[in-house]
């Protein structure tokens, strides 16, 4: 009996046109719908707040009114499936990229992707980065066959738009300014300690990191990065790997595995 009632109650929460389930009353019989609307409002507002908290730069770009309208459509089609509200909205960036009214802001979905990654990194597993000095203990001959285990919080977001710059301006990291050049940018998101770091990757850095994350040894990853990006600079990327705290373990791949 309660199962049927709860079903009606749940269905009416997201559907303002659906009538209030039978047997529900307020103080005044006439105010029954107004009372039920408190629950409708609580649910929607709490989910809007959760999205606004997670996607604050995205909201800043489009303004609160547009953001809320967009978020309402998202909530109706993608209500949360889990009680962990900090992860609600993982699908919001994909939704934005297909949301026609946002089409004139083509970088919006990528900024949202960056913000979604930041929350995941914030809550990711803790791992202490490796001391960069360890690399000095490896002989020059072995360097190419080093395999790195990268930090569990690491995410890379590649965009045809300058998303690191746009995000930075809308997150209060750098002052708002006119963007005169419009380069593609790859964002690195990682949380080696307690603070989430968002960095602009150098040319080829995204390919380099993706290859390393797949377990490819340093020499192979560097080759792949250089193949996609002529001005890939191994020294710069290698230094960045350690300065950003991306490496949590390393091992040397045997020569047999190097050639295969």
């Amino acid at each position: 009996m309660f199962t049927a009632l709860q079903h009606d109650f749940a269905a009416a929460l997201f559907d303002p046109d659906r009538k209030v389930p039978d047997g529900i009353s307020g103080y005044e019989p006439s105010a029954c719908e107004a009372r039920f609307n408190i629950y409708r409002n609580n649910v929607t507002v709490s989910l809007l707040d959760a999205l606004a908290a997670r996607f604050s730069a995205t909201q800043r770009i489009v303004g609160e009114d547009f953001f809320k309208s967009m978020a309402r459509v998202f909530i109706a089609g993608h209500p949360p499936a889990s009680p962990l509200m900090m992860f609600y909205g993982d699908e919001f960036p994909d939704f934005i990229s297909s949301f026609a009214p946002a089409a004139e802001i083509p970088y919006l979905a990528d900024v949202a992707r960056l913000e979604a990654a930041q929350t995941r990194a914030y809550h990711a597993e803790d791992r202490d980065p490796l001391d960069p000095l360890l690399l000095q203990t490896i002989s020059a001959d072995d360097l190419g066959s080093v395999r790195f285990k990268l930090h569990p919080s690491l995410e890379i977001i590649s965009s045809p738009h300058p998303i690191v710059t746009i995000w930075g301006m809308n997150a209060g990291v750098v002052p708002l300014d006119e963007i005169t050049e419009w380069p593609a940018q790859d964002a690195l998101i990682v949380r080696p300690y307690l603070d989430v770091d968002t960095r602009l990757l150098p040319p080829g850095g995204a390919t380099f990191l993706r290859s390393l994350r797949q377990g490819k040894p340093l020499a192979h990853a560097a080759d792949e990065a250089a193949a996609t990006q002529q001005d890939f600079d191994l020294a710069v990327n290698l230094a960045g790997l350690f300065s950003a705290g991306l490496v949590v373990a390393l091992s040397i791949v045997s020569p047999k595995d190097m050639t295969s």
């Binding site: 079903h7 929460l13 649910v43 949360p80 499936a81 009680p83 509200m85």
Partner: peptide
Amino acid sequence: WSAHDGVFFNDLLPLPYTEETLGL
């Protein structure tokens, strides 16, 4: 209650007080 049919509502929703709900 706050979840139904795979959806989490992020609100504390009321239930009737009956022998049935007491049991559950």
